[in-house]
Design a protein around this nucleic acid. Structure first.
Lengths: 324, 324
DNA sequence: TTGTATGCGTTATCAC
DNA sequence: GTGATAACGCATACAA
């Protein structure tokens, strides 16, 4: 056999005689030989792998983002490695490693700080930021949050509510910070004083349950609870059930994300729909664009209010399946 | 400065003078130099990264497995790359690549066929199989399925049901195949003829809705529906609501997984609890054990029936939160 | 069309 | 203690 002709065979270099190529392929088959993607990467070749950096992999949101992204990855015949940082102190190192092992990265909200984003970008890592503003020349994909949040809170104020509570931690993610900002802006626009602080909590139903419990112990008691996610709103529904509160008469509730389960609740949950899967798709489009050397810009996808019964409205669709 | 002394500095080799070490470290800091994990791996060093191969990343099950695994990974100061194959034809190549870029793999159910498992294993890849029987010397972690499924179906038969339907595709995963086998075994034990075939479908609520619709059109109509997962059972609840059927009087329903939402349903869902997160933890323990060169064996973790109202029972906990 | 030589960034085995 | 040097497995420019 030969030596570096093998490389040509694998890169489908046309300047190899068919007979030689077949001989190499046959030998490879016989010896069970496989090219080392590691060595390939070391030699500077692209690997066809991209990385997704998430805070964690729990819930509908992360799942849909990954799904949308992978749909495009499959079309691009590429592989996707998903890394969850779980807020580890060492996560910077892990992300650096992932960058070294892939052709590009999608970085979700605050998993990586601006300094590291810039450093990686300057070292040549293709990066698309997600659910977070752009950093210098590094583009981002995110949903519109602030205006939809302001509309939502204004809608509740329009129902006559004067004491609204916000459940969720604005410091947990840029998206939540913008929802909190929109919530406050609605108060300002109506000449109302917003609550001094949000009811900070995590992301699970249980967190929502506990946060609601604290919110309802405030004096004077809020008449409406704006939740940062549908998941949290589900916890509020539970607590309301335990305390014998009628929704929305005794308490209005809103969410964010428009989970499939949310319209089946009683009353159906008023929420904000964001195109989660499409956000993942667009992130993929941008990242693969960057890898192909195309210029790409940041994107902000629209969100839309979904008014149902839990805010006090009684729309026609309340008791029927919307997508039957 | 020097040349390969740098390597000693990074591997914390004691045979370096403190002064030299500091000089190297200072220079590295100044130049923003970082060791290449790629080259390290090429030289045969472990990377501290392990890979998880899933069919997809949707739903509570995958999320909990990943969570349990990563808890251990964090303790081991390691990184986890999650790859979803989505049933791609090329997924074998993707898994090979992942194996080359990591210290070990967890392979979920049918994402990788036996032949490739054996090939990778023989080439030195540390592998732990998940929700699937062992392959030769390659160990696996899974939950008990068959017996719990037989118990569940027997319980329904004990309620007087004679026409049970099974919703879910036994060919989709080994776990489901065992649940179907247990379902049939219960019929055999009771001297009943099981349905000839399961009502095959996917994994979403909508799949459950459609499957239930087909099941209820059978003649004679089944009086109980055994769902392969809680998610599918939720779809059955929806359809029952649409058709005005009372649960469990008109139709008994059971699930599998014990989702948080399942006990809040009306009636609360009878299901089977499997220790999903712990399965993930054990997979991590086994894989890190293999990497450390320890001998490890396969594990089968117990599952437990959770009898609630949807099978026809009226246990005391029916209308209260179990974990309040 | 094919073989030769060099580089990619480490680790490890020798010398010094 | 520290500096050369040979792998590790590939790509690639250049020579034949």
């Amino acid at each position: 056999v030969s030596i570096a002709t093998v490389s040509r065979v694998l890169s489908e270099n046309p300047s190899v005689r068919a007979e030689t190529r077949d001989r190499v392929l046959a030998a490879a088959e016989e010896l069970g030989w496989r090219p080392s993607s590691l060595a390939r990467s070391l030699a500077g070749e692209p690997s066809g792998v991209v990385g997704l950096v998430f805070p964690e992999l729990i819930g509908h949101y992360a799942a849909q983002v990954v799904l949308g992204f992978e749909e495009r990855a499959i079309a691009a015949d590429g592989s996707v490695y998903v890394l969850a940082t779980h807020g580890r102190a060492r996560s910077g190192e892990l992300v650096r490693d992932l960058a070294a092992r892939t052709d590009g990265l999608v970085i979700m909200d605050r998993t990586v700080d601006d300094a590291l984003v810039e450093e990686l970008s300057e070292r040549g890592t293709r990066i698309v930021l997600f659910a977070r503003p752009p950093v210098g020349p590094v583009p981002s994909v995110r949903a519109e949050n602030r205006r939809a949040s302001e509309e939502l809170a204004s809608h509740l104020i329009g129902h006559g509510h004067r004491r609204l509570a916000f459940v969720g931690d604005p410091d947990a993610a840029p998206d939540l910070a913008e929802r909190w900002a929109g919530f406050r802006a609605a108060h300002a626009a109506a000449g109302l004083a917003p609550p001094e602080s949000p009811q900070r909590c995590g992301f699970t139903q249980d967190d929502g349950y506990r946060a609601a419990s604290q919110v309802l112990d405030r004096e004077p008691r809020p008449t409406a609870v704006v939740c940062a996610t549908d998941e949290l709103a589900l916890g509020v529904y539970w607590l309301a059930g335990d305390r014998g509160l009628q929704l929305p008469a005794d308490l209005a509730v809103t969410g964010w994300d428009d989970l499939a389960a949310s319209r089946a609740l009683n009353p159906p949950l008023t929420t904000v729909h964001q195109p989660i899967k499409r956000l993942g798709e667009r992130a993929a489009d941008l990242l693969y664009g960057l890898i192909d050397g195309q210029p790409v810009g940041s994107e902000v996808l629209p969100s839309a209010l979904v008014i149902r019964g839990s805010c006090g409205c009684r729309p026609a669709d309340q008791r029927t399946r919307e997508n039957a």
